[in-house]
Nucleic acid binder design. Structure first.
Lengths: 262, 262
DNA sequence: CATTCAATG
DNA sequence: CATTCAATG
């Protein structure tokens, strides 16, 4: 059994400083943990966060200090890890890690935010397009694919509290949602929604400005998608809104795959 | 009897937030208070700081947000207040207030910092030169002059804890100290040093980086200077190192001048 | 080290 | 609102 978690931490140093990160990690013990918005270089971290007992860690860093960044924590080292998509425009922002675990290739991604004024929407849609090309190439190479992270888009009206008010807000615009349609058309499964097609109020992000978390006025922006061949292995998919410390909460996926744990 | 205080607060909002400023003001009740490094526009302040009971307030603001800025709090309104020296290069940094109190003209100034790499030394020396011209013009117009504030220069070796190590550091370079020599040659009196010519360890600023305040490794950078005609009125000059909340402490001057207080 | 601001989300 | 950085002192 393999447990995978994904969490946009909104600053790894901040969630560590609050005394939350290592506690949660020690308690949860995911086999694989994907972080987004780490907002740091590894050399800015203390040893306890950089190398928690039992974990290998991998880092994608933005050229711009304090911005973006993703990390991978895992109990077994991948066969290989690729930092970035191989596309400098995106890779300089530290958005992507691709890890080959043998049974599957895992892509941990912090998808671009379209920006309130929509100025980064073209950049986001280009990332999304190139991202889909990348994972399709992996599948054509015979790999099973899992991708997770902050997709920065709610797919359907059920995936946010105020769908009608946000039709023209980045994160729920038709063009953004259609990209997820395309992902699903290619056969990828939104694991949480596949298991819980009708569950409402299932969100992973809440705006801090409006204190919307206490009212659960949120969005489901964080996902675990799998290629369809992995469907028989899915044991559970979950959202963990009780885990505080960021404006996002973690999401998880449990697979029926043996680990080498002794 | 008239009590004047001068204090570089290193951010008025910060010293207010710490609960120090209004407490200190209510307890001390200076007739006149000159602040430097207010680092704010008046509209960024709450009413209680902007208009404490019994005080008129006047503001010089930098064009650059959060930088520099001086303020004048006084129980009796001046006959006139001039914001700036009339020199745009300096006035755009909100460094100077000139207030005519009838008995004397008070100039509240935040003299430029020469910058660690000495890059602002020419700017500082030009400000100092133009400042001296300004107060000399006031005297030639028949006024008694008081000037106070953060002069950003220690005059003599007795005025800092480590004179030999700082001969080439801005704040104690020969060229900076010679400007104070010139002020003294014109007859102005450094009120504190006039009353206490041999007192050592009398500092008004301590570097935060090195926690030097607890060791009293400091500099005397804040002064009340007076034109010589006011000498007979001087009752006391003091330094108040126990007042916390900034990296500078307040300094004060007490004059034998009647106030209109009922 | 401490203050403030700007960018970003 | 919260995180991080940069400039300044």
């Amino acid at each position: 059994m393999l447990t995978l978690y994904s969490w946009n931490v909104n600053g790894l140093r901040a969630v560590h400083r609050k005394g939350i990160f290592l506690d949660w990690l020690a308690r949860t013990q995911p086999d694989i943990l994907c972080l987004q918005e780490t907002k740091c270089r590894p050399d800015q971290l203390s040893e306890d966060v950089l190398h928690p007992p039992g974990y290998y860690t991998y880092w994608a860093v933005s050229e711009r200090p304090g911005y973006s960044g993703v990390a991978l924590y895992c109990k077994q080292p991948p066969l290989s890890v690729q930092v970035g998509l191989g596309l400098p425009d995106f890779d300089r922002e530290g958005r992507t890690l691709v890890a080959d675990f043998g049974d599957f290739t895992l892509v941990n991604a912090y998808f671009p935010n379209g920006s309130r004024d929509h100025s980064r929407l073209p950049f986001k849609m280009q990332y999304n397009a190139d991202f889909l090309d990348t994972i399709e190439n992996l599948r054509q190479g015979g790999q099973s694919v899992i991708f997770c992270g902050d997709v920065n888009t709610a797919h359907q009206p059920i995936d946010l509290a105020r769908p009608r008010q946000n039709m023209n807000a980045t994160g729920f615009m038709p063009i953004e949602r259609e990209w997820i349609d395309r992902v699903v058309e290619r056969g990828y499964l939104d694991t949480y929604r596949t298991l819980y097609p009708d569950t409402t109020g299932a969100y992973t992000w809440w705006a801090q400005v409006t204190f919307s978390r206490q009212k659960n006025v949120g969005w489901r922006l964080d996902y675990f998608f799998i290629s369809p061949d992995l469907r028989p292995r899915v044991m559970d998919a979950a959202i963990h809104p009780d885990v505080l410390g960021s404006d996002h909460c973690p999401v998880s996926l449990t697979l029926a795959i043996e680990t080498d744990d002794q």
